[in-house]
Design a protein around this nucleic acid. Structure first.
Length: 443
RNA sequence: GGAGAGGUGGCCGAGUGGUCGAAGGCAACCGCUUGCUAAGCGGUCGUACGGUCAAAAGCUGUACCGGGGGUUCGAAUCCCCCCCUCUCCGCCA
């Protein structure tokens, strides 16, 4: 009945089961039994539907004929009515069967990741990711680089202790120039994307409903990564149930859902949005506990593009370049890596990560992840487009990427632009956004 | 939070149990007209899934009138729950 919620094309799964298995295996999904079960469900589903529709047709014809009998109290009418009761029972049974099949089907299908695009390199994990290009070079330092926590503490601009007091672990209080840089970075990024790269600026709710999260595929599988706001608990206790809301983990969710259940006629569309992002970070205990690399709350400017399948590769590359421009403007050394199939996110078919150089960690760290989802999200979202006025609607493609994660950008600025005395040079492009300040130094 | 009114096709808007996928209008598209001229006439004009077909077109079946459930031989129309919008009051950045 409603198959829009499927993430993979069910017909494809049914008709090309082996191919789907092979593709999913590339990203480490090897549950062949579930896929076999899925294929079986697909066919029993269509069987049930065909049968049910046949009954519905019968019923409709009979009911229509009865409507034409003028005398509703006649014996003929009563007789017909009785004879239809059996059909009604049969339909109920068929409906039950169909519902059961659909429920199981949906369960499986919503949990299946996307198929990697053919151009996505093979590989099991991040060690097989491919470095596509590098920009700039590691800043030369004739001293031992400090990390941003140490720098920020000495400069009096990052306060983790008080954040822990106010809220808890994995939060930060930014003070003085750090707070101002955070705000300035947000403006700089939005201005670049809007004025130079042609994105439409949008401002969205930071709380979204479950339908939206299903649309972009955070739900149902990744509920534990989200902060969840419960409303109307008293109603829920009565079995009614209000609508629960979730804090957005990324602007991808509200922005991509802008076009849920819509048929667009003017592609491509490009949106840039700032939102705070909230992540529970369940399962990452002990990982990046120091500093502001991995926080429960951070700011991000997100880029989202909607396009035709034909344009997608090009649009994906374009979006990635737009994100890179921000790092270039800030004079931050980075590299772009293409994720291998095994390291791909759940919904992505192809993905470029932009990794910024952090001297204190002696490592490149992800600062943006630019993903192309094919029609995976579009199918869940029922987001389509029409290429001609009377043309048939087709699923569009979605692409998104951070442009950039602001907190990590701040970290990179502190660490890459630090000087021997512990002060930090503010990149020129950013100065107009922070009241002309050129350096961060201890007071 | 309290009281009330509503949610119908791209838009407006009829429709209170059968002949309704849904009047009429607008917009759009395609023709025709060119002495009613910022016009006239005719036609087309939702989506999804399935069947037919070599395929497309066409034809055809089913579902969808905010969402879910129920009553009935039959529901856009009746009943229940939910969501949303609007108006008034209260509160409030």
């Amino acid at each position: 009945m409603r198959y829009g919620s499927a993430m993979l094309d069910l017909r494809q799964v049914g008709d090309h089961l082996d191919e789907v298995k092979t593709q999913l295996a590339r990203r480490g999904y090897d549950d062949g039994a579930t896929l076999d079960r899925l294929a079986a469900l697909v066919s029993s589903r269509s069987q049930a539907i065909v049968e049910l529709e046949e009954c519905q047709r019968e019923r409709n014809e009979a009911a229509q004929a009865m409507g034409k009998i003028a005398d509703k109290s006649s014996a003929e009418f009563a007789e017909r009515r009785e004879s239809l009761k059996g059909l009604k029972e049969r339909m109920k049974a068929l409906e039950t069967t169909r519902n059961e099949v659909e429920a199981e089907l949906e369960d499986i299908v919503l949990g299946l990741p996307n198929l990697p695009h053919e151009s996505t390199p093979d590989g099991k994990d991040e060690s097989a990711n491919v470095v596509v290009r590098e920009w700039g070079e590691k800043p030369a330092m004739d001293f031992t680089p400090k990390d941003h926590v140490e720098l920020g503490d000495a400069l009096g601009i990052l306060d983790f202790d008080r954040a822990a007091k106010i809220t808890g672990a994995r939060f930060v209080v930014l003070r003085g120039l750090a707070a101002r840089l955070e705000r300035g970075l947000m403006q700089l990024m939005l201005d670049m994307h809007v004025d130079q790269h042609g994105y439409e600026e949008v401002w969205c709710p930071a709380l979204v409903n479950a339908d939206s999260l299903r649309g972009t595929s955070q739900l149902p599988k990744f509920a534990s990564d989200l902060f969840h706001i419960e409303r109307h608990q008293e109603l829920e206790a009565q079995g009614g149930g209000g609508q629960d809301l979730f804090l957005v983990p990324t602007a991808e969710v509200p922005v991509t859902n802008l076009h849920r259940d819509e048929i667009l006629e003017d592609l491509p569309k490009a949106y840039a949005a700032y939102t705070p992002c909230f992540r529970s970070e369940a399962g990452s205990y002990g990982k990046d506990t120091r500093g502001m690399i991995r926080q429960h709350q951070f700011d991000k400017v997100e880029l989202v593009r909607f396009c035709t399948p034909e344009d997608a590769i090009e649009q994906h590359a374009l979006l990635t370049q737009h994100a890179e421009k921000v790092l270039q403007a800030l004079g931050l050394h980075y590299r772009v890596v293409e994720l291998c199939a095994g390291d791909l996110g759940f919904g992505a078919a192809k993905c470029f990560d932009i990794e910024v150089w952090l001297p204190a960690q002696n490592a490149y760290r992800e600062i943006s992840s630019c993903s192309w989802f094919g029609d995976f999200q579009a199918r869940r979202l029922k987001a389509r487009y029409r290429s001609e006025p009377k043309g048939k609607p087709r699923l569009l493609h979605t692409i998104n990427g951070s442009g950039l994660a602001i907190g990590r950008t701040l970290v990179a600025i502190l660490e890459q632009h630090q000087r021997a005395d512990g002060s930090v040079t503010i990149p020129e492009a950013l100065r107009p956004y922070v009241g002309g300040a050129e350096v961060i130094e201890a007071k």
